[in-house]
Amino acid sequence: MTEAEFRSIYDRLRRQLPWGPDDRRGALNYITPDEVRAALSEVQLGRTVPLAAPIEDWPAADNPEPARHEMKEPLGADAGRGVFFGMDRIAMNIHGNADSHIDALCHVMFDGTLYNGVPADTVGEHGAAELSIDVAADGIVGRGVLLDIPRSRGVQWLEPGDSVTVDDVLAAERDQSVRAGRGDIVFVRVGHRRRRNEQGPWDAAQARAGLHPSVLPVLAERQIAVLGGDGNNDTAPSVVAGVGFPVHVLAVNALGLHLLDYLQFTSLASTCAAAGRWSFLCVIAPLRLPTGTGSPVNPIAVL
């Protein structure tokens, strides 16, 4: 895709925003109380499945600055008579290439603006004055839909550099007898986590499977509310000449979609396949970071 073609899609999607210049919730507006109540009917098995990968505190090819998990003294060996407490502290980069996280609408700056034309300089040394992850402070609850692209293609995973196309999305929907629609929380599996678990970490910043930007207009037409993946959602290297992270730009900046990156779908995919259904109740609860550009997250699927 050329930069001119990309910018044409970007401009068209921005013009289609239905909520007006003062909106700060983006596609979360598609999740109404009616959508939440309807999503409750997805629960049939009474089974919960976590969608986050375990946080790693050791360096890897895709995680050179891992989370730091430190225990505070006194430790258990020092505990004597009476009450003692085990206490720990964690510090981490939210927007890395390994840990599961959600991107706020202030995360992606393009041509000097954030979502809905908010100036980029509203993000400063003390965080984001607008569009922070606190937009989702009430939590995100709705119908989740998993589209398993490797399953549909008949492979274990998509190789780094490969892209999920519109045809892939439609084929997965057909094969799984499911259709993503208004207010849905859509997860697209490329098999990134399975490849990482079986072959080891690699420099995912340089090479990873993701969505082709041409998929975003289809998802916009469907009026989905949230988008997530087991990789970064963007293919690397970028498929758009001169534009890095085109899917992030179209999703977060143009459409106001909260993105979830580097989730883990192995258990969810097997559970959905065994149940013969690929939709479920989904609950997402970001941390309360009033000026944060994102948050660590562990979405829960309830089937």
Rank of each mutant, 00 (worst) to 15 (best):
S8F: 06
I9M: 03
D11N: 13
L13R: 00
Q16F: 04
R24W: 04
G26S: 07
I31P: 09
P33I: 08
D34T: 11
V36F: 09
A38E: 12
S41L: 13
E42L: 09
P50D: 10
A53D: 14
I55V: 15
D62I: 05
P64I: 08
E65A: 14
H69D: 00
H69L: 15
P74L: 08
L75R: 14
A77E: 14
A77R: 15
D78L: 08
G80R: 10
F84P: 00
D88R: 14
S100P: 05
S100L: 05
F110E: 04
F110I: 01
T113N: 08
L114P: 01
Y115W: 11
T122C: 09
V135Y: 06
G139Q: 08
G139N: 07
G142W: 04
L147A: 02
D148Q: 04
L158G: 03
S163H: 08
D167T: 12
Q176M: 12
S177L: 09
S177E: 12
V186T: 09
R193S: 13
E198H: 09
Q199H: 13
Q206I: 08
Q206K: 15
A207N: 12
S214E: 14
V215G: 01
R222M: 13
A225V: 10
L227V: 03
L227N: 01
G229F: 00
N233E: 11
V240S: 04
A251I: 03
A254W: 03
L260N: 02
D261F: 07
Y262A: 07
Y262W: 15
T266S: 15
C272P: 04
A275F: 09
G276E: 10
C282F: 05
R288D: 14
L289D: 08
T291Q: 11
